[in-house]
């Protein structure tokens, strides 16, 4: 029995509206409701980036939302999956080119699943999340392998507050 394969059964979602029209957001809310009930898949809407696996982003990224989006994304621990919900989150949609819009979510953070529609239907969101589960599992494996590789290369005793870097940077001109 491979315990690791059960990991994908617990995706906790985090929802952020980066400047959309609320349409997709209320459909995400509808997903939680009894008719669609995504808790069947073990999903919880945590509202807390530190404990989430899946980031559901809706809406085109406005200039003010951009930093918050990246900040929240950075606070999520790997493995993490980003789903852009709806046309405007995926590409900017109808808002593309407006002066305060920066375009799709993938301009700033890597997006794994694009969900189409304006607005997306709950079924589509659920479908997107289920696709994300497979990606999540793949990413988990990748992460574990990379961690294994890294642990051997890193020497002890560096500064703690940074990610360890295997090799020192040598000055080009000496």
């Amino acid at each position: 029995m491979n315990l690791a394969s059960y990991r994908k059964k617990s995706p906790w979602i985090l929802h952020y509206n980066a400047g959309g029209c609320n349409g997709c957001d209320i459909e995400i809310l509808a997903c939680l409701a009894p008719k669609y009930d995504i808790e069947r898949f073990g999903m919880i809407n945590t509202g807390n980036p530190k404990q989430s696996d899946i980031l559901l982003v809706t809406g085109p990224v406005t200039k003010r939302s951009r930093e918050r989006l990246v900040e929240i994304y950075a606070q999520m621990p790997e493995p993490k999956v980003v789903i852009s919900c709806g046309a405007c989150a995926s590409t900017g949609g109808v808002f593309r080119g407006m002066y305060n819009c920066e375009g799709g979510v993938d301009q700033f953070i890597p997006v794994d699943v694009y969900v189409c529609g304006c607005g997306t239907r709950p079924e589509q969101i659920i479908d997107g999340v289920v696709q994300a589960l497979a990606i999540l599992e793949k990413k988990t494996k990748e992460l574990e392998e990379s961690v294994k590789l890294k642990r051997e290369a890193v020497k002890e005793g560096h500064q703690l507050n940074r990610r360890h870097i295997a090799d020192e940077i040598k000055p080009v001109l000496s």
Binding site: L3, A4, Y6, R7, K8, K9, S10, P11, W12, E39, R40, F41, G42, Q51, D53, P77, E78, P79, T140, L143, E144
Partner: peptide, 17 residues
């Protein structure tokens, strides 16, 4: 959710960065 959901959560949390 399924009955064993808390344990799935447990396993998942163990694998996070």
């Amino acid at each position: 959710p399924p009955l064993l959901q808390p344990f799935y959560d447990f396993l998942k949390l163990a694998g996070k960065r």
